[in-house]
Write a protein that binds this DNA or RNA. Sequence first.
DNA 1: AATTTTCATTACAATTTCATAACATCCGTC
DNA 2: GACGGATGTTATGAAATTGTAATGAAAATT
Lengths: 215, 215
Amino acid sequence: MAKLLIVDDELPINRLVCKNLTLVGHECIPAYDGVQALSLIKSEQPDLIILDVMLPGISGFEIMKLLNSVPVIFVTAKTGLDDRIKGLALGADDYIVKPFEMAELTARVQAVLRRTKRDVSAFSFDDITVDFSSRNVYKNGEHIVLTPKEFALLELLINNRNLALSREKILEKVWEYDYCGDTRTVDVHVQQLRHKLGIKDRIKTVFKVGYRFEI
Amino acid sequence: MAKLLIVDDELPINRLVCKNLTLVGHECIPAYDGVQALSLIKSEQPDLIILDVMLPGISGFEIMKLLNSVPVIFVTAKTGLDDRIKGLALGADDYIVKPFEMAELTARVQAVLRRTKRDVSAFSFDDITVDFSSRNVYKNGEHIVLTPKEFALLELLINNRNLALSREKILEKVWEYDYCGDTRTVDVHVQQLRHKLGIKDRIKTVFKVGYRFEI
DNA sequence: AATTTTCATTACAATTTCATAACATCCGTC
DNA sequence: GACGGATGTTATGAAATTGTAATGAAAATT
């Protein structure tokens, strides 16, 4: 999960990009012109900027000249070679030409985030942070040690937050598919999670069904 | 300026790429198939690899899976979205589609080299210094002798610090790609590193998964 | 060829995980 | 409020996983 600044003056495109990148877990801040972008870069300190070249007022190229260390993916309608080279020469981390497929944009975003080490595939709620890439969990900055089953269960709950998960479903996903154990096993692990994380009301019991992680 | 490995089985293209990149001041080493590429990566330790996907023998994708920290620019004739995403997901630093203009390739090479500029030929933590260029390790100024496997493992851990690395991933990267050994081998080498470097708590075990180097 | 070094494998010890059981408490229904 | 089933809580021992040291084969060096 990373904080992204989406700079594009075309409202529908900006919306679409934001929506898609939010869906894969990022926080997206839209900006619709160069001046707004510069101000948001200062105040929000995004991890990555997706920057349209053609902007009212200050152009994308000029914005990039003012940047220092923030990674940038350039977006433009121009397919001319000069523009691409200009973008890369200015220090862009990547370049994508309109019209582009959303899948390609998200792939490029992930690639840039990975190599600039700015991606923190983490999930936070209350005073708890779950870092999936390092498999660490913190509560108030303090490290919480989870066993493999506990971590897998927490991961499942987070990925299906606000959904009621049946014990059977949980068994199927966290344990082996054909595992034929007591469903009470699930209960015990849920209690363990509640205890270790100190969250009583986030993991709700759905009577006669299973559990639901509410956020 | 930099040492580049050009991997392409089509002789004229390989020649052309080499020629152009040599003209802008790089040292170019050509490779014409996957096996040759792997061997040259080991012996020459290039700063950047330009990698064609379609190769006789081992594919470009498979080569990339085995790489650790060397930057890669993918070259392919396929314009399909899947291939592009696959390349980026595997950790490619850039992607270029045939046929491409030489000016664009050289621009992308410069861009990748600029942002991967490895000014850190050494890595230090606690009382330990790891010098990657000379492959020396010091603890309190005292020289620590590491075997090749141990050094490769340490390098992998440092390059992926604060990430949970699975035993399979470690085997894949440090050992040969088709090596089919006991995963306990990884454990033994990790213990050896912990012992030699005198770091017990830096290399954490991630139960049921593998290890994580914390810094 | 002899010596040294590297390293995969093995066996066993130490540790961790986790399913189960046993009992306590809660919930909905009557 | 009483009942029965469902869930919360805690403890325990077996099983799985990892730590450790030793061994001998293979590779590298002399």
